[in-house]
């Protein structure tokens, strides 16, 4: 696979959220506003690229019996670095994402890529895989965020904590409140997954005909 194909694989064929169904808890929890999606996506991408590179470089040094604790330490280190840096540089965004940044440690996407990809490929390929998976996760979050924020509140990109009012597309009272609430996350994600699976199945069928 070329570098570009590795990247594309993360966004489309093996999109962590829509195709591998990994990292669901953060996807369901933070997708109430587009700003949260951007922040969370960037944070996860940073951790993923960092841990992928280090784990790939250490892949011949780490004996297989202790690979899981070693991976978790590396991932936890990167997560803490991102967490601290965000708290210092963007306290408002850090306040919004709060608990979800430390939870990147146990985000299955990061550990899955360490185990399934970075431990078997070189650093450059692992970087591309991290970028691709991170981008795939971010894109997936944004799709869910846009649907929930737009239909739920009638705004887009609202970021009050940053003093940005966002785009108001229709009156807030017209929004479907349910979409902002937790059930809205399940409904949106469920319908999106159903749609994507239907599309993929149809494409596969065509290939076989």
């Amino acid at each position: 696979m070329t570098k570009w194909e590795i990247f594309k694989n993360g966004v489309f064929n093996e999109n962590p959220t829509f195709r591998l169904i990994l990292g669901m808890c953060s996807t369901l929890a933070i997708t109430t506003a587009v700003v949260n999606g951007i922040g969370m996506g960037l944070a996860l991408t940073l951790v993923l690229v960092g841990s992928n590179v280090i784990i790939s470089l250490l892949r011949n040094v780490i004996p297989k019996e202790i690979r899981i604790p070693a991976y978790v330490v590396v991932i936890a280190t990167f997560t803490t670095i991102v967490d601290k840096t965000m708290a210092a540089a963007t306290p408002d965004l850090h306040g919004v994402l709060g608990i979800f940044i430390p939870l990147i440690v146990v985000n299955c996407i990061v550990l899955a890529r360490a185990e399934a990809y970075a431990s078997k490929h070189n650093a450059i390929e692992s970087t591309m895989d991290g970028l691709g998976m991170g981008a795939g996760y971010t894109v997936a979050l944004l799709v869910v965020c846009v649907i929930r924020e737009l239909l739920g509140t009638g705004t887009l990109l609202q970021a009050k904590d940053f003093g940005f009012a966002g785009f108001h597309l229709f009156a807030e009272d017209m929004g479907v409140k349910l979409l902002i609430l937790p059930p809205g996350a399940f409904l949106t994600l469920g319908l999106l997954l159903a749609g994507i699976n239907w599309y993929v199945a149809k494409r596969e069928e065509k290939k076989h005909d």
């Binding site: 250490l58 040094v61 780490i62 004996p63 202790i66 604790p69 070693a70 330490v73 590396v74 936890a76 280190t77 803490t80 670095i81 601290k84 840096t85």
Partner: peptide, 16 residues
């Protein structure tokens, strides 16, 4: 190996 990884991580975290 595990000790070295932990010590290095700890050092980096202390710095950050």
């Amino acid at each position: 190996v595990l000790t070295i990884i932990c010590v290095v991580s700890g050092g980096i975290l202390g710095l950050v």
